[in-house]
């Protein structure tokens, strides 16, 4: 094992880390806003990968071009999720909320299996292919651009939430729903916006990943687990925590796979989750 292989693993871990961070950011946004853990997050990722796949197959749109369209599709499905399901369980017990989103995840997954069969698919010759070589280190071009786009969207999301007026209204609703309502913020609209934003984040990650990842109905399971871990690690509801946590998870996954055994990537990430839960239940950046 040379130093180059380790650097290689660190870089690919970092690249995946940015993608995890964006997925987790969507989850964290929804959680921070209304205190609901979206257990169907992986399935939303799967939906976005499938929509970019179908846009490519049916209309010939390359994933990188179809980003706005998948964003729109997922945002609409997020708004629908809010108005058809989440609106009714906002005040219910936490266990009911878990049941509802878990049920949604099963529904979406079995719907995907039903509609598109559990076959593995992939986007054949996309625009982004091949690899870059920098000083003897190889970087897959799709991975590189995927993480670049994810990082960019992450920064945009951060700026939107912290600087724009709507973003501040979003934060106000997250902090105190009643107080925000007295100030003339329509909290229901804000929740819908939160779902739309959260799922748009997922859609960007999913679309960029469809360049280099197989697409099948169960694809979301592991990513969703990583996203849960990232949110718990970064602190529930903290967006900047997600970035750090995503990077940590990416690094642990790739270094653990390289140094110990690649078949237990999930185990290393999960161990980190357990350690965080034991020693710092509020997460790294938790309030």
């Amino acid at each position: 094992m040379t130093i180059e292989i380790i650097i290689q693993a660190i870089i690919s871990g970092l690249l995946m880390g940015f993608i995890y961070a964006l997925i987790a950011a969507g989850l964290s946004l929804i959680f921070g806003l209304m205190g609901i853990v979206n257990f169907a997050h992986g399935e939303h990722l799967m939906l976005s990968m499938f929509s970019s796949f179908w846009l490519w197959t049916l209309l010939g749109l390359d994933p990188i071009i179809s980003i706005p369209i998948t964003m729109l599709i997922l945002a609409i499905s997020g708004i629908l999720t809010h108005y058809l399901l989440i609106r009714y369980i906002l005040k219910a017990k936490m266990i009911v909320q878990i049941c509802a989103t878990f049920g949604l995840s099963v529904f979406l997954r079995s719907l995907a299996q039903f509609l598109w069969t559990p076959d593995f698919r992939n986007v054949g010759n996309p625009l982004l292919e091949g690899r870059l070589e920098i000083a003897g280190i190889f970087i897959g071009q799709p991975q590189f651009y995927a993480s670049l786009v994810c990082l960019l969207s992450f920064l945009l999301l951060y700026l939107f939430v912290n600087k724009s007026e709507t973003g501040l209204a979003l934060q106000a609703t997250a902090q105190d729903r009643k107080a925000a309502e007295t100030l003339g913020i329509n909290s229901n609209k804000m929740f819908a916006l939160g779902w739309a934003l959260g799922l748009s984040c997922v859609s960007i990650a999913g679309t960029m990943m469809s360049n280099f990842f197989f697409i099948f109905p169960d694809v979301g399971v592991h990513f969703a687990l990583f996203a849960f871990v990232a949110v718990a690690l970064g602190g529930f509801g903290s967006i900047i925590g997600c970035l750090i946590a995503g990077i940590i998870i990416g690094l642990v996954e790739s270094l653990g796979g390289l140094l110990i055994d690649p078949s237990y990537k999930l185990l290393y990430v999960f161990l980190i989750y357990l350690i965080v839960v034991i020693y710092r239940p509020q997460g790294l950046f938790g309030r």
Binding site: M94, L225, F228, S263, P281
Partner: peptide
């Protein structure tokens, strides 16, 4: 802790048990 912690933990441990048995 919050009840989602246990939900995520059980979800994770069951995937890991299966992974260990497979490998």
């Amino acid at each position: 802790l919050r009840s989602d912690y246990l939900a995520i933990a059980t979800l994770g441990i069951s995937e890991i048990i299966i992974a260990v048995l497979k490998h």
